[in-house]
């Protein structure tokens, strides 16, 4: 069974440690640049009293969210938003669990921002945005479920456009046994809308072959998607946990 949907990608931007411009991403695609082990994006555009509480994951999310909207000339208060992350702020959560085990009181700040929708809340506060916002997680398919959520919102109501933000960072050492191919930190934001301007794309998903092979898993979907955006290929198929996702776009547009 196949489900097809179409929409436009008005703008996108991505950040990873050491790879934070379109040219740097092209070098990364060509194998001439690696994503570094550490690094945090600057979020100086946010007020100091707001910024100081943000974890690295939230800084990553807000950095790409605001940059993507600024480049598109879109008011940050005038979008709906979907924040996708497989693990969320797992480093903060693990720190809180360590505090509980040690009998230490929990930091109210870290506790309040350890929830999966922390970045969603922080974005809407910083942007003074009153439109719907949600946070999703979906195992290996987290990125695509974020896109699907946004596509559903666009299908339901054409405007305002929907910002999709995907972030993840490597699992802490303690959870090493659960690592699943996602060994780098990255953030990507896409502004999706139901009409021009933007690159028209169509998305199909169908039951795939259930992947049970953990060792040697392919690159995470969001980074494969960036490779595709910066290529001249018209089609892309991403194999997920139990679905195959097929993207199509006109052959000539390279997405930027």
């Amino acid at each position: 069974m196949s489900q097809s949907t179409t929409f436009h990608i008005r703008n996108w931007c991505a950040w990873a440690p050491g790879v934070d411009t379109p040219d740097a991403w092209r070098e990364w695609c060509a194998g001439d640049r690696d994503i570094a082990d550490s690094g945090t994006p600057r979020v100086d555009f946010l007020p100091a009293n707001f910024r100081r509480r943000l974890s690295r994951v939230s800084k990553m999310a807000l950095a790409v969210a605001f940059r993507c909207l600024e480049e598109a000339g879109t008011d940050p208060a005038a979008v709906r938003s979907v924040f996708a992350s497989r693990y969320g702020d797992v480093a903060t959560t693990l720190g809180l669990l360590h505090d509980i085990v040690a009998g230490e009181p929990l930091s109210p700040t870290r506790f309040s921002l350890s929830v999966h929708n922390a970045s969603s809340g922080l974005f809407t506060i910083a942007a003074k945005n009153h439109h719907p916002s949600t946070a999703v997680s979906g195992r290996r398919d987290t990125f695509m479920y974020g896109i699907l959520e946004a596509a559903g919102m666009l299908r339901h109501t054409a405007s305002p456009p929907v910002l999709v933000v995907m972030t993840d960072e490597p699992l802490p050492e303690m959870y090493a046994a659960f690592r699943d191919g996602d060994e780098v930190a990255y953030a990507i934001a896409l502004l999706l809308c139901d009409a021009e301007p933007g690159m028209p794309v169509s998305l199909d998903h169908r039951s795939g072959t259930q992947s049970t092979n953990v060792a040697g898993e392919p690159e995470c979907q969001a980074l494969s998607f960036v490779r595709w955006l910066l290529s001249d290929k018209s089609g892309l198929t991403l194999s997920g946990q139990s679905l195959d996702w097929s993207w199509q776009r006109p052959r000539t547009d390279n997405g930027h």
Partner: peptide, 17 residues
Amino acid sequence: LGLDSIDALELGMALRK
């Protein structure tokens, strides 16, 4: 200084520690 209620809780915890 611009502190808020979450900061008050955080500061209360630090005073306790």
